[in-house]
Nucleic acid binder design. Structure first.
Lengths: 216, 216
DNA sequence: CCCTATTCGATATACTGTTATCGATAATTC
DNA sequence: GAATTATCGATAACAGTATATCGAATAGGG
């Protein structure tokens, strides 16, 4: 934790999660008309505090000019560089159910620098099929393929009861980051990152909001 | 804000998002063998602080007994009641692309109390088709259908550039909570809740983690 | 029947993240 | 060219959340 961090002193996860929003917004602007963008302008568009925007952008060191703002092209470039868009990360996906197949087909990942190279499952009905040009293989081949192709990212789209089991297989296969769509807390070694995409949690917030208004 | 809240004094979004995790874990236990569960046991399983678990559970007022813990069955019931599982919330979905169709087909939502009744799109190629028994209609019919069926939840699974436009249509149709899968910050009136399921943000965290290790 | 150990529940402290404040800088205007 | 104004960048106050500490309560063992 306390070693070898020269250029990126402290970047919080919260900030990191906002960076793609900035990027998305900046890219949606007309680059012919807008050459320079200010932090208050970004803050207004995204409903954030202007100070927070500056703080976030300061973290990736794309110096702005007082009175004008930031150079749009440069800022977009810096964000893309920082977020690693461009350098594609290859990933494997386990669980070729509805959700898994949707993720395999989701073209937008390309622009975020993610490429799912292959899917895995245990169900003979889907093994051997192709989804969006990607093969679905038997899970037994997970480890050898990941080792051979040096895959770092595993996407977990299996039912909750199987999640930990598959997670263990991924870790054993050399995966270093797991994107978990199952509503369970995964048990992993220290050096593995788990990013949870917990739909049940989001739904809880949604339905609570509705119930609150109803109970009034 | 400051009126008529007797039973649920203050529940943070963070706590609310953890509740489904507790529920999922508790339901995965063997109810024949385990009748009582303690907060330290839950904390260990989910890698949380035991005090935090007690605080979260205190929010839904399911009193535990010193030295033993909480009654498992009662706790599960209270969680389900609180989260509104059982009472079905009906929702509409806009955007019948890969992600949208996956969400239409995602059976697990049933157990979370969410029922997607119909999908909408603008593409003639998908309009009129059925996905998992749910019709896909032209977006022009969104408002009349939502009003007629008193739908409160809208699921947004369209490309980023169309997201705000569709969002406005949902608000106009009487939707009160929007589950947003597009990587944009939506502009909505005060009383509308937007829950962002931002995959780009999650990916940023993932790839940053990997890059950090590479740069070492 | 009392003592010990474990857990609940409440209070207090620490921490992280957001918002506000202030000086410095650079364009624009007169 | 000087004054004005909008913005950056840093520091400070604030809020909300997570963690630690402590007393009270109860089951089990001696």
């Amino acid at each position: 934790m306390t070693d070898s961090e020269f250029k990126l002193p402290s970047i919080s996860v919260q900030t990191l999660r906002r960076l793609p929003l900035y990027l998305e917004h900046l890219k949606s602007l007309d680059h012919e008309k807008t050459k320079i963008i200010s932090s208050p302008a970004i803050a207004r568009a995204l409903h954030l505090n202007e100070v927070q925007v500056r703080k976030d952008l300061a973290a990736i060191k794309s110096g702005g000019r007082p009175r004008t703002g930031y150079l749009l092209e440069k800022l977009v470039g810096d964000l893309e560089t920082y977020l690693g868009y461009g350098n594609i990360n290859e990933a494997v996906l386990v669980g070729a159910g509805h959700l898994g197949r949707a993720l395999l087909s989701y073209k937008e990942f390309d622009s975020y620098g993610l490429k799912i190279v292959v899917g895995f499952d245990v169900d003979d009905a889907v093994i051997g099929t192709e989804v969006a040009g990607k093969k679905v293989l038997h899970i037994g081949k997970l480890e050898s393929l990941c080792r051979r192709m040096h895959i770092n990212i595993g996407i977990l789209a299996v039912p909750a009861p199987s999640a930990q089991l598959v997670c263990n297989m991924m870790v054993k296969a050399g995966i270093r980051a797991i994107w978990n769509f199952a509503p369970v807390k995964l048990d992993v070694p220290e050096h593995i990152l788990v990013q949870n995409e917990n739909m049940a949690s989001s739904l809880a917030v949604l339905s609570k909001h509705l119930k609150k208004r109803i109970s009034k």
